[in-house]
Design a protein around this nucleic acid. Structure first.
Lengths: 181, 181
DNA sequence: GTCTATAAACAGATAGAC
DNA sequence: GTCTATCTGTTTATAGAC
């Protein structure tokens, strides 16, 4: 498996444009211009605009599922730290795709390629709170999930520099310091 | 000042649809259907789709400017707490509008109605960090700003219940606990 | 596999009747 | 102030030549 070029280039340009201007804000024309081909060529390689989106997010959705499955094996005490590390790594590995998923979820949440995202982020949120169910903790976890994803879209910044800062803020916000009595 | 009805109803429906599906994801047709009138009626009351957007965000942008101006008068020690309280209140007062501003900024940041948003959020971010300029602190502030705005869009939840939880997570993440030596 | 040409649907916006 | 009808441009997608 290797040679394809045009197909890969379409995916590369589409990922970048979708993340910058949103799914609705990017036309096939825009992508074709970026690739240097015609719209018809795009639609030779993909069944439609939505098929490009689905192929784009598939690896990120798959890795989210893997992360959540791995977290299920941990106990309530160790799971928040692992969830933080895992989510930050996921988001930095798929910066463009994650922001695109946030963008497209309102429209495509019931499409096959997206239907697992909501339940998995629910489990991830539960893992971040040590499955405590505490309402304030749940809200804190949501703030961190949305915030980390929102910051990661800005790919001007070096992932290696971003990673420790994102992990640090999440730990400070979500993991209570040990009692001092 | 009182009677108008149709015009107010257009703004109400547009705010809700823009927040749910994004500016690009909402057509004049969608808004007209929600209001129960024709597209032509929309365009009698407003110069165009963008004019609806601008009128929608104006109060939120104005209050953001007021908040930032007020924060400028505070010293570096007290400013982070005031910035957190002020931003949470702003976001809860304009839940739909704030998420809409996040959505529309990439496209309209240079339009008159939006041009003050970036500089003001820069000042707000600086206020959240006590103007320390510490890179990790700046990233933490961005995570909290984006995360709080992201959570506030979900208006299923009671603002009175959300407020203390949002303030608590922001304080925990952004304001270092007093030294214990 | 890639192109040009074109279809079909939809967008925002206007004209003019009521 | 609201409507129907229409214009114009853009969108996704297809047909068919090369």
């Amino acid at each position: 498996m290797a040679r394809s070029s045009t197909r890969d280039e379409i995916l590369r340009v589409a990922t970048e444009r979708f993340a910058r201007f949103g799914y609705k804000g990017t036309s096939l024309q825009d992508i074709a211009a970026g690739v240097g081909c015609s719209k018809a060529t795009l639609l030779y390689h993909f069944a439609g605009k939505e098929a490009i989106l689905q192929e784009l997010v598939a690896p990120a959705v798959r890795d989210l599922a893997e992360l959540v499955a791995r977290l299920q094996t941990l106990d309530d005490r160790t799971v928040p730290g692992a969830a933080i590390d895992g989510f930050v790594d996921l988001v930095l590995r798929y910066r463009h795709e994650v922001s695109l998923i946030y963008d497209a979820i309102p429209q495509f949440q019931h499409e096959p390629a997206f239907e697992s995202v909501r339940p998995h982020t629910d489990l991830l949120r539960a893992a971040l709170t040590g499955r405590s169910g505490d309402p304030a903790g749940v809200i804190a976890a949501e703030v961190l999930l949305a915030g980390i994803a929102g910051v990661a879209i800005d790919d001007e910044r070096d992932a290696a520099r971003l990673r420790p800062a994102l992990i640090a803020v999440a730990r400070r916000a979500l993991i209570p310091p040990p009692d001092k009595d």
